[in-house]
Nucleic acid binder design. Structure first.
Lengths: 336, 336
DNA sequence: TGCTATTCTGGTATCGGTACCATGATATGC
DNA sequence: GCATATCATGGTACCGATACCAGAATAGCA
């Protein structure tokens, strides 16, 4: 692969002159410019970014560290990230941690060695260790979706606590008095926030704390299935179930189908984030949807602000509203 | 950010000695090793890969250039790619072309400047221009999913032609004589291959060429909707519709729902690749599914074989079988 | 013609690693 | 005690770009 020196030799000039031609700098005569351009074309020369990256300490690369790209929510976030990055000339390296702290640490170490310009991180756990490691190296960092306690870091989340609050209020207004919450692990901030939204809605409705029924599990289909099985054992049976994420909702629906329970007649349900729905039927489940693409875009814009230095304000916490959609699964007529 | 020279100075040794400690090379005394490791820790030193990349001309980076990560098929492919790459120490840069040749070219130029080690490409068009540009630079390249005519290049595809053939055979065996094919643009090889599978099945069943009804559109929901609207105008109306990809199928279902046509009683349907299906109902649509994750994995293994030089065989064309699933939408009982 | 201003071109150093070779220090064998 | 082998360490150069400064060529003007 030819270098700038090969081109220079071929054109009978100095490397720096070729550089000036490439970058459209002033002070290159028409004759020289044409000769150099001919040489570039003939040799198929492509400038090597690595030299520049080494010299000027910027790689024009960001990293997106998420739990799993096959979750449609993260897919959409990723698309938002890539769009904004691309529009400003940055590339995005994709990393899947599968919620494993070990995998996350491996990835982060690799990213630091690569001297990428900034990191978008969905933390696999609530420990601030990873954040401190990145901050110590002075790499701009934006945390996505989940917060980390007692940590000064830019953050972009959706207000799922409010989403849950409103949906629980909605269920209460439909007369449900026994609403059970199925959420994620206590180490994941969104799982805790959503449980809090649930508790707050009950309290504001004047219900005693003891009326709260919360199951802590994993944010997976299997977790949703297990928690639903347990929740249905309660006597009296809950009249409504709330799934704290879309995978939990899928497991919940599976368990309800196996039990032969009708929705919403036997049990009403609601959830956070849409579940995949077949185009042959009307979407069915009442949800509070997080604006995934917008989260990706805003997080990337914030990160690039830090990277380029155009943004020097204090730490930001951007909270985007969720979008409520009331459908048949909660017992309400669709569209209302 | 400290360099190897900073660490060397701090530990009172030469940079090369620090290098030896980092790489666990022989011939470093215990005492020196301990002192250097202490300095590394104290300074928070992280080696800079850029120096190595520049020197040894490898960046340990691959690129995945697809049309759109929000399509679940590509998402799954991407996951397969990332898994294999990660296991061998490579990172993956993600690029969405949105089927635009211009965007593709921009991305490829950027990737060449980055001196990435290899490219996985889903071509936005059937022109061999992009392939030639990459091959001229000597960058290993594997084409995914779509072939490019008259071009010598490694290729990983699914045998969707055979999948279509079998599904059409299946529809014929159920007595359908008027089957209409809704496919993608003529410039996309899979759209052509799937049309060919359709024609071959008709021919082998002894039907005249004139019995073929093929609509060429775009591989999108909108395309599927438009083509279905047109197809339903035919008299006599088709008794079965075949959608050449999952997005087309979604548009098709939408149009059929609007027309109030029942599946399979009024019209039978089948498609390539699963469409998202709600967990509240049984999966419904008869499909030939492409093994997306495996395609990503095999393509990446092939690519890394070329990158590392461990694979020097002739050009390969890996064709993976599709998986047939007969469900209710074709008029057959589920599971049979 | 001589002087200055402008245009054009190039030499050298640098970014952060490691390969290569050289050299000094210590251990081993007879 | 001396030759040789092994261990331990360091100096220099290089990968491919461009910044910085220097200097040469030309143009403009009195």
């Amino acid at each position: 692969m030819p270098t700038i020196r090969d081109v220079a030799k071929h054109a009978g000039v100095a490397p720096i002159t070729v550089s000036r031609v490439i970058n459209n700098a002033e002070y290159v005569s028409q004759k020289t410019r044409a000769r150099v351009q001919a040489s570039i074309k003939e040799l198929g020369y492509v400038p090597n970014m690595l030299g520049l990256s080494l010299r000027f300490k910027q790689t024009m690369t960001l990293a997106l560290v998420i739990t799993d790209i096959t979750n449609p929510f993260w897919t959409t976030v990723a698309r938002g990230v890539e769009d904004v990055a691309q529009s400003q000339g940055y590339s995005v390296i994709l990393c899947n941690t599968d919620e494993s702290e070990e995998k996350q640490e491996q990835y982060l170490n690799m990213l630091l060695r690569r001297r990428i310009d900034g990191i978008l991180l969905v933390p696999a756990c609530s420990s601030p260790k990873a954040v401190h490691m990145i901050q110590r190296q002075g790499i701009p960092l934006v945390i996505l979706d989940r917060s980390i306690p007692d940590t000064e870091v830019d953050l972009v989340t959706a207000d799922s606590e409010a989403g849950v609050y409103q949906l629980i209020q909605h269920l209460l207004s439909l007369g449900h008095m026994r609403i059970t919450m199925l959420t994620g692990p206590k180490t994941v901030s969104t799982a805790v926030a959503r449980a809090n939204g649930y508790r707050r809605a009950l309290a504001d409705a004047g219900l005693p704390e003891s009326s709260a029924r919360i199951y802590w599990g994993s944010y997976t289909q299997e977790g949703g299935y297990q928690m639903t099985r347990q929740a249905l054992q309660e006597t009296p049976r809950p009249t409504a179930l709330f799934a704290a994420n879309n995978f939990v909702a899928v497991g919940m629906l599976q368990a309800l189908r196996e039990e032969g329970l009708r929705i919403p007649d036997d049990v009403a349900i609601a959830t956070i984030d849409d579940i995949p729905s077949s185009p042959i039927i009307e979407p069915f489940v009442t949800t509070a949807t997080q604006p995934a693409r917008e989260m990706g875009q805003q997080a990337t814009e914030l990160l690039l602000g830090r990277v380029t230095g155009s943004l020097t304000d204090a730490i930001q916490h951007i909270v985007l509203p969720t979008k409520l959609t009331f459908r048949a699964s909660s017992g309400q007529k669709a569209g209302s």
